[in-house]
Nucleic acid binder design. Sequence first.
DNA 1: CTATACCACTTGTCTAGACGTGTTCACGAG
DNA 2: CTCGTGAACACGTCTAGACAAGTGGTATAG
Lengths: 244, 244
Amino acid sequence: MPTPRTGTPRYRQVAEELRRRIEAGAIPAGSLLPPESALSREFGISRGTAREAIAALRSEGLVVTEHGRGTYARPAYPVRRLGANRYGTNNSHRPSDKYQVDATINEVPATQPLANMFNVEPGTMLLCRKLVLSSHRVPQQLSTSYFILETVAGTPLADPNRKPVVDNNPVHLRAIDIVVTDIREIVRARMPTPKEVKALCLPAGTPVLTVTRQIRAGNRVVEVTNDIVLPSDRSELEYEIPID
Amino acid sequence: MPTPRTGTPRYRQVAEELRRRIEAGAIPAGSLLPPESALSREFGISRGTAREAIAALRSEGLVVTEHGRGTYARPAYPVRRLGANRYGTNNSHRPSDKYQVDATINEVPATQPLANMFNVEPGTMLLCRKLVLSSHRVPQQLSTSYFILETVAGTPLADPNRKPVVDNNPVHLRAIDIVVTDIREIVRARMPTPKEVKALCLPAGTPVLTVTRQIRAGNRVVEVTNDIVLPSDRSELEYEIPID
DNA sequence: CTATACCACTTGTCTAGACGTGTTCACGAG
DNA sequence: CTCGTGAACACGTCTAGACAAGTGGTATAG
C-alpha cells in the first residue's frame, strides 16, 4: 500500500512531527520517544520508515538511541567552556583538579607535515605525548602533542611517571626555561572516526571539534599539538581578540 | 538466506573494506564508488545493506552521494581559512572582492538572551542584519548580527541599499566613530538544521562550525553576532593568542 | 530471600522486491 | 549541426517480514 506522495517523503514528515513534539515539550528532554512499532502504527508506515525518521533526528543531534531501551529526546549536556584565558600565566584556577589524565609518551621521528609545522628537518626526533582527559570517568578530550626531543629530554615533561599537565603548557614550559610568546590555534569540525566515537563515548551523529595548536617561543616552535579532539556536545571554545 | 554472523555486522565489514580501498587509493578521491547494485552483487548482500555501508562512510564524511549519479570518495575541498588577522585595521587584502553578499536588514526588540549579551534592557530596539556570503554561487557562510539601533540608525551600516561589509566590521564601525577595542568569539560545532543544509549546499553528514561573536568598544557591546554558520568541510578558524 | 530462567519489549541487522526521481548519453528528427 | 527524447542506470523511498541482541521485570526454583 504505497502511501500517496505529497512531495516531501513520509519519513521526513514524521521526523518533523516528532521534532515539533520535542520542541513543544510534549516529549520532554530526557524522556523516551514512542518505540518504532508505535510510530509505525500511529503514522501508518512500516517500521523501516519509522527508523529512517528517527535516524534523521539523530543525525541532527536531537535524539539519542540505546539498543534495547529506546530513543530519548536528548538532554542538554553540561558544557565545558575552554576559556580565552586558559593559557594565562597566573593560574588562579587549576582545572587539573577536576580532571583525570592518562598519558602515553614515546619518541618518534618527525614526518613531513610535522617537520613543516616545527620548521625542522624531517626525521628530527620528537617527543610524542598522547593524552586522554576524563571527568567523572567520561573522556572529555583526546590530544596528541609533539615536542622537539632535544629541548625537553630529561625534563619533567618527558617523564612518563610525572603527573602530566592538563592544559596550561606555557606555565610548565617556563619551568624548563622556555618562555612562550604566542600560541596559534586552528579550529575545525568534522565527524569522528569510529575509534573516537568509542573513546569519547560519543552519541551517534555528534561531530567533534579539533584544534591544531602551535606553541611558539620567539620564532621557535616548541610544541605542536596535532589535534586536540573535543566532543562538540560537551565543549565550546572561547577566544578574545585584541584590536590594535 | 541470512549470512552467518561473525560478530560484526555485515554492513560494517563492507564499510571497512570500502574505507580501506579509499585510503589505499584504489578508489581515488573524487572518483565514483561502485554503485549499490554492484556492491550488492560483489559482497552478496541486499541493496539495503549496501546502502547502510555507504551511509556509515557518509556519516564519517568520507564519501558524498549525489542522487542519480553515485557516491564519490570525497575530494579535499579548498578550505577557506578565517585567519587570526581577519579583524586587522589595515585591510591590506579585501576578501569582499571575491565574495558576493546578500543582506536583509530589519529592526527587532531585544529578546532576553540578546539583551544579556548587550547588557541592556530586554525590548531595546536592535538592528538585525542577516548575511549570506557566497563564493562562485555557493553559499559559504550565514550570519545574523545585531546592533543597538540607537547607535547605528542613520549610518551606512543601517542602510539596506548600501553594499554590506563582509568581515571586517571594526573598520566599518570606526567609520561611524565607534572604536572597537576587543572581540570575543565562542566557537561550537553541531549538525546543521535542514534549512542550513539547503542554504549552504551541505553534503549529508557534514557538521557546521558556529561562532558567536561579541564586538566591544571599551566596556560597551556594540555588536552581537548570534551565530556565524560555517560549513566545516570548507572552513577553518585560526586564532593567535598572545601570552603576557 | 536470592538467584536464575524466562518473557515481553525494545532496537539492530538483513532480505527481496517495488516504484519514484534525477543523470547521462546515444540516437534520431528536424 | 542542434535539439529533444527515451532508455539505461544511478540513488531515494517504502513495504513486509524475519531473526538477533540488549534490557528490564516477573515468576519460579532453590
